[in-house]
Design a protein around this nucleic acid. Sequence first.
DNA 1: AGCAATAGATAGAACGTTCATTCTAACGTT
DNA 2: AACGTTAGAATGAACGTTCTATCTATTGCT
Lengths: 199, 199
Amino acid sequence: MDKRRAARIDQVLNAAADCFVEFGFHGAGMAKIAKRASMSVGHIYHYFENKEAIIAAIVDRESELAAERFAEFEEVPRDELVHVMTERVDEMVDSKADAFQSVLNLEILAESQRNPQIACIMRQHDEEVRELFRSMLKDKLNLPDAEARTELLLSLFGGLASRIIRHPELDRHTLIPLIKQVMHLALEPCDKDDKRKSE
Amino acid sequence: MDKRRAARIDQVLNAAADCFVEFGFHGAGMAKIAKRASMSVGHIYHYFENKEAIIAAIVDRESELAAERFAEFEEVPRDELVHVMTERVDEMVDSKADAFQSVLNLEILAESQRNPQIACIMRQHDEEVRELFRSMLKDKLNLPDAEARTELLLSLFGGLASRIIRHPELDRHTLIPLIKQVMHLALEPCDKDDKRKSE
DNA sequence: AGCAATAGATAGAACGTTCATTCTAACGTT
DNA sequence: AACGTTAGAATGAACGTTCTATCTATTGCT
């Protein structure tokens, strides 16, 4: 039976994600993970070589999930793309306010700076997302500098998550229109009338 | 002698910051911190009640430093402000690429989600920075929605740091002009001609 | 069908290490 | 001699990991 094994692994990963959010990668012990997974400590080692492997699996799973969320936009026809993307800003902000996701992402980001294996997994997924965005902007919207526009948008969305942690009471109703303005700037070819500004 | 004491404390904080960047708040042990501070483990406890206090001191110091960096703009006269701010984007991006600062900030951000004391320190400093920005935009530039514009800029800058970790090879030469465009959008009262977009 | 053998699932104790913290004894300066 | 300063051993708890034992279910042979 292979289903059972997969289910158990998922059980461990869910428990681990919980603990990692609550205590951090290094603050969460195997004992806590085991207890939350309703499993013995030793048994976890039948599914994962060590704690690092659990962290790596979590990073992989979480990054894949994030990538899938972006992939939705690929199905949108080109003349609706800008409209759909700007319309989804509200739920985007809401999702960034989800502490679970945000903290896990921060933990991953910090860990990637000291663990090359994590960095590798993370960058692979980021490249995926980046290429998806880039090709959308270039092929669907015929935009120049698609790479830079992608980086701008990803910076903004990524920053939103940290911002909400720093200032949870922030007034979304006045911020969201501003974000939409930036998105229009990034999603429409208004490059030329701007070179006047760059001194 | 009070100078000596202050110097020793700084010695511990510097060593601790180093270790926290390299191993994380919970991955760094007192033994490592002591060794890097050229000090005995036990002696650190004469300056700090416990490890948490060291973390708190680091968070405080680092947040204050970040706030001071922003405070420079307060001295700039109002008719040069937009110019100066957009001109400093390049060094801003460079500073965000400094792994030391970025990782420490991520660690702080993640820790603030699970340690209320850290969250408190961090939010106090963020409020300081936010108010500084807000009053600058409102009083010096006479901008409406100064709060929202502040949040947008802080999101963007904060996101830039995470973005560079995710994609260090990112092409800054094409991204920076885009960032400057966003800054002009956020620093100039072009609110009206945009309501057309918000459906 | 019925027994033997095997493989995987599971729990929990045991290991050596490292952790944060405390304690004690020695040091250097006055 | 006294006092603040320092080093490092001592402590017990917690860590990640390994080991062993028991249990369950499937497979192969007759």
